[in-house]
Amino acid sequence: MVEALSVKGLKKYYKPRGRFVSKGSFVKAVDGVDLSIPEASIHSVVGETGSGKSTIGRVVAGLIEPTSGEVFVQGTDVFNSSKKEMRDLRKKVQIIFQDPYSSLNPRFTVMRIIEEPLKLNKIPFKSDQITEILRKVGLTPPEDFLNRYPHELSGGQRQRVAIARSFVIDPTFVVADEPVSMLDASMRVSFLDLIAGIQRERKISMMLISHDISIAYYLSSRINVLYLGKIVEAGDGEEIVNGPLHPYTKALIQSVPKLGKIEKKSVDIKGNIMTSSSEITGCKFRERCIFAIDICRKKEPELVEAKPNRLVACHLY
């Protein structure tokens, strides 16, 4: 069976701008990532700002070209296909963006925003298709919204419009890049339920990108934890959350706010993502790691199967 997404050895390096940068040095946004998502399931990529998670999403959606590696979406090679194959692929792939303010053109009405994917992809449609999708995402009655501009809507309503735009052309693969992080915390679950509902109903395959592992846990079956462009742990969501192996995954889970007063949150990690650089030898996480041992400085750990169906890149395992 063809997988919905297959990514092998994906690398994306940027040349740093500026005059004092030594030749041959690169910012390694994504540095050798393998991913595969089976049809009709949601897998997530979790990491902090700067982990490279959004870069992966944009490469998968064909918006930027990778430095090397291959990306197959539903059997189509995203970077080695004919123009026609790519056009057909784009009809099937959609992205949901994080920011409901900048992802909608402020000069377009809701109707124009939602019609756009249909028109651009030359898919014939009837106007009740537009009202139906508006109803589906909870903008009712649809007639009240069709002629409004984004600035006349609340943040939540805008994100509903963005979701409607992504699902109006019946995509089979969706990249959801932080779809709820700009929304009020109390609204997040209802949006996740909305997305999951459409996904299940239409058997869409989805890649969820999030900095919040609780969101990934809620929506996806498998979690990939990304740190500085590399996957450090991957496995079933339930198993990862209940028994994280990598120290970074542990810190991500500890950091999630939970109900109830606490004196001090134990976050077993040092510094922040800027503390480490992709230039350092050995494990890229070692300077933040409280368990770092001698070997971590010398050798970069490989992503190995620590237990069945669980990958981890850490010398402790």
Partner: peptide, 20 residues
């Protein structure tokens, strides 16, 4: 309280319906 996506406890959170 009920709309918090709890990690590690599989009690399903329940969204508050509607918009602010």
């Amino acid at each position: 309280i009920n709309s918090v996506p709890m990690i590690s406890a599989r009690s399903k959170p329940e969204a508050i319906p509607g918009e602010p």
